[in-house]
Design a protein around this nucleic acid. Sequence first.
DNA 1: CTTGACCCCGGACCGCAGTACGGGCCGTAC
DNA 2: GTACGGCCCGTACTGCGGTCCGGGGTCAAG
Lengths: 128, 128
Amino acid sequence: MGTYTIGELARAAGVNVETVRFYERRGLLRQPERGDGYRRYPESDLDRLRFVRRAKVLGFTLAEITELLDAATAGATDDVVAAARERLASVDVEIAALQDQRRRLEALADVCAGGDDGCLTLAVAAEP
Amino acid sequence: MGTYTIGELARAAGVNVETVRFYERRGLLRQPERGDGYRRYPESDLDRLRFVRRAKVLGFTLAEITELLDAATAGATDDVVAAARERLASVDVEIAALQDQRRRLEALADVCAGGDDGCLTLAVAAEP
DNA sequence: CTTGACCCCGGACCGCAGTACGGGCCGTAC
DNA sequence: GTACGGCCCGTACTGCGGTCCGGGGTCAAG
């Protein structure tokens, strides 16, 4: 009760068993107890694993998640907030880059649709 | 005149010499003539290389660029336009994903700043 | 005559986040 | 008894786009 085999843990978190082992190697999950040689995870490890997956959805890298986990288990709310704001800033940068790409692609499609020869070199005049 | 060594070509296009060789292996650049064993690139290969770099800026993968090059050298403007529109569509998907991340991050930062305990699990109530 | 700047090559390595592979153990159900 | 599912392990491979490494050749300047 309240403890999971690796397969159960993986299923509960919606990840692959291999992923759990991989996270363990990476230090994202601690070595669980092993009575009979098999890993036995307490509920808290499921929470931890879910934390990792949620952080992934937010776009954090595994390296960042490692720090985030340390902060969260230490109750350092401030550090979590700081990390979130930092990530927010880089998301904004990424969005801006994609919007620039988008703009260029539209310009290209427009020019090309007009039968312009610049199309074949992907050269599009810069916006004024 | 009008021909470049690999180093000159690389410099002219703003890439690494290794990158030129890598592109050659990938088939993005054709095998140039070699009088004395050294690669000798005509102007057209500089154009080609620049095309590749511009396509990269637009977010195309090297595999896509390979096709794009074929289309462009064949004068198939339509295919180029189609590729641009396709890429445009996936850029939009990427932007939407990032905006979703952004939204979640903001919600997290807000909740955390309020001293909420959900912060330490990265759990944030879904929007209504 | 050595130093430096080019060039040649094949193959290894980077980061990122897993995924797959091959071999072996254990228990249960058929 | 043997097939199946779950677990164990270490290692290698995936995709992407390069980048670096070690070893070797040629030339001109100092």
